[in-house]
Write a protein that binds this DNA or RNA. Structure first.
Length: 451
RNA sequence: GGCGCGGUGGCAGAAUGGCGAUGCAGAGGACUGCAAAUCCUUGAAUGCGGGUUCGAUUCCCGCCCGUGCCUCCA
């Protein structure tokens, strides 16, 4: 059996993956903060780690994949203030929408989807440990992590404590012992969500939740920790600091998670999506026009570590690609169940640091083979590990409904063709094209596709 | 300013110290009443300047360009 290779952000090298326990691989990926609809960047993270989990499940007998929901955060409080909705209502609503949207992209639910608000005691316990060990201190109702107490700090992002301070654009709070110190716990006013703690009523800082939830559900150390590239600093750097220090590993950055995997960004017209640029593409909106599978293929069409510049043209191109596969599959006889064996060309590509473009190229190569049950089984097996091709019979290139006027014109054209009135039939076709509908004549009759 | 990533055909996108995949688009052909869909065939690329080397797109240095993080961010 070939081994999985992964690029480890901690060492900046592609490495053979060697699980701590080959009978149980443990994976954690930072999930979304639920205060708005998920954008396509959230989806990229979910799809990438879904593929990683699928690959791991092929290679190892047991995999536990944990991906959290952050449901306490100042952004959520802001959203609540703006909309007038209760915080709980907002987080529940957008957690549900996130899970629905990811399901539409054929993202399998993680084994555990912990929520921050149900892990407050674990966070408090972790903070207490850090205070006891001399890595954290209380100041004016806050608890802060003392960065100089962790000599290895900065190893993930390649940024020393001094460099971080030199580039800091934030005001440094006067009660910090060191300018680089960051908040573990902060006080809440009465109108803010808060929990009782040894330091008064308050709420957790951003980073402590993942340290606590990963430890709770996976144990420390575990195998793979992932997330978007922007989380490297400060989020993951601080997670490492908290968790390593809580476990007395002052010089070993891998004492928390052995391998760190970061996916690149989705950009639009070459720039990162941001609210201020107004170029944020929401999964929810895209799903109105495209099947989730098209979006999934689009997200996997570039290597996960590369930036992915998204455009409607690119999505449309992937829809054409997917249509080709589905048509071929629909015409093949054979079992509907994906075969146990993933074609080696596809598996090898995925094992090489999740090289999905290579895997898709291998998929295209499969189409060169002769029709038959073996081809169908191989395509389905290859598709299954990438998360594609599960419903060829129902495949539609667009999430579209054909309007009545199109149906009428189609019927008129059928009649005209029956009478060999081709002039009239072609007129109708031109008319439909002008209105944005392309006709495909199939053995089952004409089908209209939106252009 | 500090740290990082990238520049491959018209577009997208892999890989590689020596023949540079694959897809989309384009062109030609088959099929079709004509098309569409499908199939076959096909042209087309490594930012610039040095260095290492028998040989560099690949390794090293410099430059230019783009982009990301350093503030919330997947």
């Amino acid at each position: 059996m070939l081994d999985l290779k992964l690029f480890n952000s901690l060492t900046r090298r592609k490495e053979d993956f060697n699980p701590l326990d080959a009978t149980h691989v443990r994976l954690y990926a930072c999930g979304p903060t639920v205060y708005n609809y998920a954008h396509i960047g959230n989806a990229r993270m979910a799809v990438v780690f879904d593929v990683l989990a699928r690959v791991l499940r092929r290679q190892y007998p047991k995999v536990t994949y944990v991906s959290n929901i952050t449901d306490v955060d100042d952004k959520i409080m802001d959203a609540a203030r703006e909309s007038g909705e209760a915080i709980d209502a907002i987080t529940e609503k957008f957690t549900r929408i996130y899970n629905e949207d990811m399901a539409a992209l054929n993202v399998a639910p993680p084994d555990v989807q912990p929520r921050a608000t149900t892990h407050i005691p674990q966070m408090i316990a972790l903070i207490e440990t850090l205070i006891t060990r001399g890595h954290a201190y209380e100041a004016q109702g806050h608890v802060l992590f003392n960065v100089p107490s962790f000599p290895a700090y900065g190893g993930l992002s390649g940024r020393s404590r001094d460099e971080q301070i030199a580039g800091a654009r934030v005001e440094i709070s006067p009660f910090k012992k060191d300018p680089a110190d960051f908040v573990l716990w902060k006080p809440s006013s009465q109108d803010q969500p808060g929990w009782d703690s040894p330091w008064g009523r308050g709420r957790p800082g951003w980073h402590i939740e993942c340290s606590a939830m990963a430890q709770e559900h996976l144990g420390v150390p575990f195998d793979i920790h992932g997330g978007g590239a922007d989380l490297k600093f400060p989020h993951h750097e601080n997670e490492i600091a908290q968790s390593c220090c809580a476990h007395g590993a002052l010089h070993d950055l891998s004492a928390f998670a052995k391998v760190w995997v970061h996916n690149g960004f989705v950009t639009v017209q070459g720039e990162k999506m941001s609210k201020s640029l107004g170029n944020v593409m929401l999964v929810h909106d895209l799903l109105r026009d495209w099947p989730g599978e098209v979006l999934r293929l689009t997200l996997l069409s570039a290597h996960y570590r590369q930036p992915l510049d998204l455009s409607l043209d690119k999505i449309a191109e992937q829809a054409r690609v997917l249509e080709k596969f589905h048509k071929r599959l629909a015409a093949l006889d054979g079992p509907e169940d994906p075969a146990l064996q993933v074609p080696p060309s596809v598996m090898e590509a995925l094992l090489d640091d999740l090289n999905t473009p290579q895997a898709i190229a291998a998929l295209n190569a499969l189409l060169q083979r002769e029709d038959g049950p073996e081809l169908k089984a191989d395509l389905l097996a290859a598709g299954a590990i990438i998360g594609l091709f599960q419903n060829s019979a129902d495949w539609q290139p667009h999430a579209e409904t054909v309007p009545d006027f199109v149906q009428d014109l189609l019927a008129q054209r059928i009649a005209a063709r029956k009478e060999k009135n081709f002039k009239r039939a072609d007129e109708i076709r031109d008319q439909l094209i002008a209105k944005g509908w392309r006709i495909e004549d199939t053995p089952q009759g004409p089908v209209a596709h939106k252009i």
